[in-house]
Amino acid sequence: MTANAALISPAISSGLSSQFSPEDVQIDIRNVGKVYGSKTEEPVVALDGVTLRIRRGEFISLLGPSGCGKSTLLGIIAGFQSATSGQLLQDGRPITRPGPSRTVVFQDYALFGWMTVQQNVEFGLKAKGMGRAERAEIARALIAMVRLNGFEDKFPHQMSGGMKQRAAIARALAPDPDILLMDEPFGALDAQTRVLLQEEIARISSEAGKTVIFVTHGIDEAVFLADRVVVMSPRPGRVREEVLVPLPRPRTAEMRSDPWFVSTVNDLWETLKPEWQKGE
């Protein structure tokens, strides 16, 4: 593993998280493990000793092949499920349940089909007990931010996949979370829509200044968006290496042809290929 990391480039190394000063750390994942077990079957180790420190405002990509536990890790950070071992802290306090400081964007959008876009975006504001007029105004601003103006009164089934995901992003931003968790958000979209939404996310995340944890199996997407790419390996899910991305933010389309970007994506592909082939 270390041999591979050394091969890639000087920017890539392991154990970067230990370099932060403690007050920067927003999410502190210490030696987290997750075992899915039943009495009858062999227990499955989904995560094994994952340690990761995430700074405030950092954009992290969790990259890995399917089955590497990256979505499980995201679900644990969200509070949907609990870790079997280890510790998980947000601003020094343990994460025990889901809450509006960590909102999630799902691959299948998970929009409320019986609500209009406006009502979907207002949901988290209503939960806060905000008044009708105020939440309508905030929701309209967010809908404009994701460029869905004019679609406020449409229902999810009346929109394309890309538009649904824009609505879901606006909904997740509405409660003004500290951390935005994105679980393969563009996995169900066609290639062109995906590229457009990647650029949107690059813009929105710089504008909103949120900490983002972005789960993906797309190498170029992971590198294009993140400040730091955390590469995971499967069975059991572990952090394999971390790649710091030196490209300036906000990211723009032309950075995709930057020599560093191109060579990093290629190098990552070369290192990950054997595992991807195994996982197939």
Partner: peptide, 8 residues
């Protein structure tokens, strides 16, 4: 889960 994380 979406509803829960939005603070429902």
């Amino acid at each position: 889960n979406a509803a829960l994380c939005l603070g429902a």
